[in-house]
């Protein structure tokens, strides 16, 4: 208390007014920040609330058990199609991504690793519509795949690959280097060390990356528009020349139709997407908690 005494005598009226002004400025900016935070949260709740309220009436058994027909119907084909597309794309991007992430984290020298990492970052910056466009002109037309599961799955895999590579690499890097050296010292091959010693502690991180990739693939539309096409029937599981239905397409097209029944279908599809994403989000949170523990 005594220490501050001399300073206090220096404060004339003018300086006090200045401090008051600066405090006011600070308060004002915090209040504005608070309003912005509230606005952002309000928008989250508004979007979720609107989708929940509008989509809920469509959550009937019929929605899950019938296919879309014309302007309305159910969503069975789109739900199954989305699942098949995600599964097929994750088989591709998961394999490539986990292996690629391992190489960058363990085997590659620092220079090669930085080049590969840079390429991965670049790929994650490619707009999804360009991947879709490329998929269309190359796979669907030039290579004659037609609208098909394979063309769509590859497009989605290209889109999600960078995320899996990045998270796999990051989670392997968090495993102490001594684990790796210890494995080699015990006479294990590089591959066995990686698979049996390093991969276990990195697994929650790798899974997080794959779930992230799934949630990105789930919400994408642009790369599927011209590769998956659209089908009023359940996915045929043929790789080529057989279009696949998916949920985001329903949200996009059926919201533009002038019929109430179509709108209902779009809202319900949006609600299903949000619910699936919410589940993925929660699982990712749980995995992250496990990673920390």
């Amino acid at each position: 208390m005594n220490v501050s005494q001399p300073h206090r005598t220096l404060l004339d009226h003018n300086a006090k007014a200045k401090i008051g002004k600066r405090r006011m400025q600070s308060y004002t900016l915090w209040i504005v920040s608070g309003i912005f935070l509230a606005a952002v949260l309000g928008i989250v709740l508004m979007i979720l609330g609107a989708v929940a309220v509008l989509g809920f009436p469509g959550l009937t058994a019929a929605t899950f058990l019938t296919d879309t027909q014309g302007i309305a119907g159910g969503l069975q084909n789109a739900i199954l199609g989305t699942l098949v597309l995600i599964l097929a794309s994750i088989i591709i991007s998961g394999t490539l991504g986990v292996l690629g992430g391992m190489y960058i984290a363990i085997f590659a020298g620092p220079k090669v690793a930085s080049v590969l990492r840079f390429a991965t970052e670049v790929l994650s910056g490619v707009p999804s519509i360009i991947i879709g466009y490329f998929g269309y002109t190359m796979m669907v037309v030039s290579w004659g795949f037609g609208y098909s599961l394979l063309a769509a799955a590859i497009s989605l895999a290209v889109l999600t690959l960078p995320y899996i590579v990045r998270t796999t690499e990051a989670s392997l890097r968090q495993v102490p280097k001594s684990y790796y050296e210890g494995g080699l010292a015990l006479g294990l091959t590089q591959e066995a060390t990686l698979r049996k010693i390093m991969f276990r502690p990195a697994l929650p991180g790798v899974l997080t990356g794959i779930l992230l990739a799934i949630s990105i693939g789930l919400g994408e539309t642009a790369p599927l528009l011209f590769t998956a096409g659209w089908s009023n029937f359940n996915p045929s599981l043929q790789l080529l020349h057989s279009p696949v239905a998916y949920l985001t397409y329903v949200v996009w097209t059926y919201s533009q139709e002038p019929f109430a029944a179509s709108h209902q279908l779009a809202y319900t599809a949006a609600l299903l997407l949000i619910l699936l994403l919410l589940v993925l989000h929660i699982v990712v949170r749980l995995l992250q908690r496990k990673k920390v523990a």
């Binding site: 952002v40 928008i43 989250v44 508004m46 979007i47 609107a50 989708v51 949630s215 789930l218 919400g219 994408e220 539309t221 642009a222 985001t248 949200v251 996009w252 919201s255 779009a266 809202y267 949006a270 997407l273 949000i274 994403l277 919410l278 989000h281």
Partner: peptide
């Protein structure tokens, strides 16, 4: 973070 994960078509709908 959930806001970042919402599909773009749902944003379009909104």
């Amino acid at each position: 973070e959930l806001l970042a994960g919402i599909p773009s078509v749902v944003y379009g709908l909104w």
